[in-house]
């Protein structure tokens, strides 16, 4: 079985713009743009995670580049830990070596998390886009277009994706459940998935698949899966820290960042998101610790040290009662 069928996020990924869930405004404007393939400008997709940005990029790649789209598409993460130079090198190599076939008007670079780059990095990216503009189109993907520097924004046509609401997510999950012939407890299951994934359709589908792997889809199986997802595991680290167990929190943090490859900045982002659902500590103090260490993480040179120091501060909240 190919990977595309094995993973439901891929199996049920929309294959055309018509299939994309909601996002009506985006679809209409894109269809108009795609009439003249050769004149496609660079695109900037802004919106929350799991709102269809990558899926849309892939649809465009298939539509423009045809059956060999994979050979002419490069997907990169702009906040690659190894730096913008690595990104530049890979784009350069890609632009230089992949020869084109008939009917392939240009190559496509899909650059995820463009807004996580520093403004220096984005300036460098602007140069990369210029250097390769002749045969390469860029689709920049980000959560907030405000995190993208003005000169980059002005080189792209901007599309804003909306967060999926509970009704859309539930409807989509139900249709998948039907096709996969899942046995489930009813609406409470879908409510639990939505609660855990907050409109992120990719996470929701992943959760659905993993939670139903044992046979029956229940609220409990959903909870078990949620706890094992990145956000759940980061949440467990913060819980340990707030409970005063610094060493357990720290080693789990190291495991997540160094073994499971969760970038330190993502760790901090997820950690802060989970803070809202926790109780029994001085919230104002905790928030100011997060703010301080978010700053230090960006300023400093050793992220592991910074996160460890942050966890130690959180662990102290408990001692101070």
């Amino acid at each position: 079985m190919p990977l595309e069928d094995l993973m439901w996020v891929e199996k049920y990924r929309p294959s055309s713009l018509e299939d994309l869930v909601d996002q009506t405004a985006v679809k209409q404007r894109l269809m108009a743009l795609l009439v003249k393939k050769g004149q496609l400008p660079h695109l900037l997709f802004a919106g929350p995670p799991g709102s269809g940005k990558t899926s849309t990029a892939v649809i465009i790649a298939k539509q423009i580049l045809g059956e060999h789209w994979r050979d002419y598409t490069l997907s990169l993460n702009a906040s690659d830990e190894r730096g913008i130079d690595v990104v530049r090198e890979r784009i350069k190599t890609f632009a230089r070596f992949a020869d084109r076939r008939e009917g392939v008007p240009y190559r496509l670079v899909i650059l995820d998390e463009s807004d996580e780059m520093t403004s220096d990095g984005q300036t460098a990216l602007r140069r990369i886009m210029e250097e390769n503009s002749e045969h390469t189109r860029f689709i920049l993907i980000c959560n907030y277009s405000s995190g993208i520097i003005e000169p980059l924004q002005s080189r792209c046509v901007i599309f804003r994706f909306q967060r999926y609401d509970e009704a859309s997510v539930t409807e989509h999950l139900k249709s998948i459940s039907k096709k996969e012939k899942l046995r489930h407890q009813g609406d409470s299951v879908f409510a639990a998935i939505y609660e855990a994934t907050q409109g992120d359709l990719r996470q929701a589908i992943n959760t659905l698949q993993a939670a139903s792997a044992s046979g029956e889809l229940t609220v409990e199986s959903v909870k078990a899966v949620t706890g094992a997802a990145v956000k759940g595991r980061v949440g467990a680290v913060i819980e340990a820290a707030l409970g005063g167990d610094f060493e357990a929190a720290r080693t789990r943090m190291v495991e997540l960042t160094r073994v499971y490859g969760i970038p330190e900045r993502d760790f901090l982002k997820y950690a802060y998101e989970t803070l809202g659902s926790m109780k029994g500590f001085d919230r104002a103090r905790a928030v100011s610790i997060f703010a301080e260490y978010d700053f230090r993480l960006v300023q400093g040179s050793q992220p592991e040290l910074q996160l460890a120091a942050m966890l130690a501060q959180l662990a102290r909240l408990k001692k101070e009662g």
Binding site: L3, M7, T54, R70, N77, I110, R202, A228, Y260
Partner: peptide
């Protein structure tokens, strides 16, 4: 996997890997 699915390595690592590892117990 990321190459295959047109998402970045980091994207797969953060968004999908935890679920894949769960599914791999089968």
């Amino acid at each position: 996997a990321g190459r295959r699915l047109a998402i970045s390595q980091k994207g797969f690592m953060v968004e999908d890997m935890p679920f894949v590892l769960l599914l791999c117990s089968d």
